[in-house]
Computed example of a mutant assay.
Amino acid sequence: MFIEHLPPESHTMTALRNELTPQQLAEQADKGEPEKGRWSQQEQILASVYDAVRYLEWTLKCVNTDKKAKTPDPPEPMRRPGAGPRKKKAQLTDKSANRLFELLQGGAA
């Protein structure tokens, strides 16, 4: 009973959350229970502000980049606790491009 009323950032609550499986963390995220996340609400808000500032900085760079130059890549959001690693973007190689072209032209697998 006392444990339920501890602040989310307390050592005890952090230790309990760290024992959760990725599936349990995902279920809590789906239920919208930020207090059960690995960060306190203040840390979550600060991360959101950090992401917003970086996005605004990126937007400013894009607006001031010469139209002929390559647009800078957008910033990656700060990784949140309980979130799995980001998936790498697929790179289109010459081999995969040729294979895709063959498939689009009616080539069999």
Rank of each mutant, 00 (worst) to 15 (best):
A26P: 00
K89Q: 14
Y55N: 12
S40H: 00
G84C: 02
G82Q: 04
Q44G: 00
P77I: 10
W39M: 03
P77Y: 09
Q44E: 09
Q28V: 10
R17Q: 08
L56Y: 14
Q23R: 06
S40G: 09
W39N: 01
L92Y: 11
W39H: 02
E19F: 11
K68I: 06
G32Y: 00
L46K: 03
Q44D: 06
L16Q: 11
E27P: 00
L16H: 01
W39A: 07
E35L: 12
K88T: 12
P75D: 15
Y50A: 05
K87L: 06
E57R: 03
P34V: 09
K67F: 01
S40P: 01
E43M: 11
Q44P: 00
E19Q: 15
Q42D: 08
P75C: 05
K88G: 08
E76G: 05
W58C: 04
E33A: 06
A29L: 12
D73I: 10
P74S: 13
Q91R: 10
D73Y: 15
Y50C: 11
P34T: 12
Q91H: 08
W58P: 02
E33N: 07
E33G: 03
E57T: 06
R54M: 09
K89P: 10
L60C: 12
L60M: 15
D66K: 15
S48L: 12
E19N: 14
M78E: 11
A29T: 10
L16V: 12
A90W: 03
G32E: 00
A69D: 14
D51H: 12
W39P: 02
R38L: 10
C62D: 03
D66N: 09
A83K: 06
L92N: 05
E57I: 08
D66S: 13
R79K: 12
E19P: 05
L46E: 13
T59H: 02
Q24A: 10
L25W: 07
T65H: 01
L16M: 06
D30M: 06
I45Q: 15
V49L: 10
L16I: 11
D51G: 05
Q23H: 10
K31M: 14
L60Y: 13
I45F: 12
E43F: 00
Q28I: 15
G37C: 03
E35C: 08
E19A: 14
K61N: 03
A26G: 01
K68Q: 01
Q24T: 15
G84I: 05
I45T: 13
L46M: 11
P85R: 09
R80G: 06
W58Y: 13
E76M: 07
C62P: 07
T71G: 08
T65V: 01
R80H: 04
D30C: 02
K89N: 09
K67A: 15
E43H: 04
Q91D: 04
D51I: 08
T65E: 05
V53M: 09
T21V: 06
V63P: 00
S40E: 00
